[in-house]
Design a protein around this nucleic acid. Sequence first.
DNA 1: ATTAATTTTTAGATTAACCTAAAAATATAT
DNA 2: ATATATTTTTAGGTTAATCTAAAAATTAAT
Lengths: 218, 218
Amino acid sequence: MLSHVEENYLKEIYGLQEATLRGVSTNSIAEKMQTKASSVTDMLQRLSNKDLVVYTKYKGSRLSEKGRLMAISIVRKHRLWETFLVEKLNFLWDEVHDIAEQLEHIKSDKLIKKLEAFLGNPKFDPHGHPIPNSNGQINKLNSVSLAEFKIKEEGVFVGVKDSSDSFLKYLNKMNIAIGDTLKLLYIEPFDNSFLISANTRQFNISENVAKNLYLRSE
Amino acid sequence: MLSHVEENYLKEIYGLQEATLRGVSTNSIAEKMQTKASSVTDMLQRLSNKDLVVYTKYKGSRLSEKGRLMAISIVRKHRLWETFLVEKLNFLWDEVHDIAEQLEHIKSDKLIKKLEAFLGNPKFDPHGHPIPNSNGQINKLNSVSLAEFKIKEEGVFVGVKDSSDSFLKYLNKMNIAIGDTLKLLYIEPFDNSFLISANTRQFNISENVAKNLYLRSE
DNA sequence: ATTAATTTTTAGATTAACCTAAAAATATAT
DNA sequence: ATATATTTTTAGGTTAATCTAAAAATTAAT
């Protein structure tokens, strides 16, 4: 059975390897885990001994199939718990991350199955991220970043890329919520800021914000 | 902030000290914690340094007021989570202990407050044990063990003393559930077994089982 | 293609939580 | 009350997960 720490490593490596086809660097893991590269090397050797990671000195790491499935199962638990916290306990979407970070390590397959049923088998978590099924399959959401929209294109806001507290709080303040229909009106050439309309109102967002908003168009 | 292990020690010491006015022995803690006496001594010294336990070498230990409140808060979380598992996720009462043992360590006051409200501020858990309030106050339940009943006395079964899997499964099998009205008909002098009636049916239980059933009479 | 910079690994320590074996304190029994 | 048994503590060691500092490998730059 894996420790909380091992599970966290798997989860972070999974997140990193999804963004690249090459090996995940030791330093990038250290940054995500808020720890030192030397600690990461230690852990990689341990995970490699357990056949959860394919690790070659100085060459970066990838999860083994076994490791990938473990990582996805943690992501699954995380997202189900986040959904529970928001849907059932009325937490706001920017409050749930740290708590789900703890809950994701609770060990009980039966619990997760029952939780999922209790929530009505949700397919997406409160941030619009797909919830893997119990076989580790993930519904890739066919959405695209607002930063890639053309002028006058519109779409429904279905999820964030980055779900940090600060970004979610910003969206709260701007009154932008999942389900809103957003339309790109204009890109200011000077600073690349985006002029957006939603319902009746109009507002500006930075390019960075646009990159973090995922929409389903057509 | 306390580690899971420290929290478990506090919880077990609390359970033990409730049963006596004297110091809790190192060995009794070791037995509960499924560990060695020497490990317990280590931990007692650590908890004592943190002012959670009043520990005097060779003389046994008691929780400090601070330690007692911490212990009660863990018991509170445990019982709220057990209630959640049974009431909302449809677990049976003999399945929830190990999962609640993990959930009780999740750190978030807000979570526990919201969970409590979501459950409708329950006063007792699925085993009939009182749920401490957020100030650490506990509703002492005024019930008495069936073993202390007189012949022909009857009462409502409100809680178990021991909530081990095996005992709860035994009660399931015997079809004895919280809320049942039980009446003591006869005590067999030969083996001290108890003849009980519940509704229409009659059955025998051992003295040991009787000691573990708590009823509210009159 | 060497040198310089960066990344990664190793070596050696630390801390929490455990262990075994031995020593010390306390309790019990004759 | 002295010997014996039991309980508890100490001493010293282990493992997981971390750290710092130094060494080794890789990458970048002139």
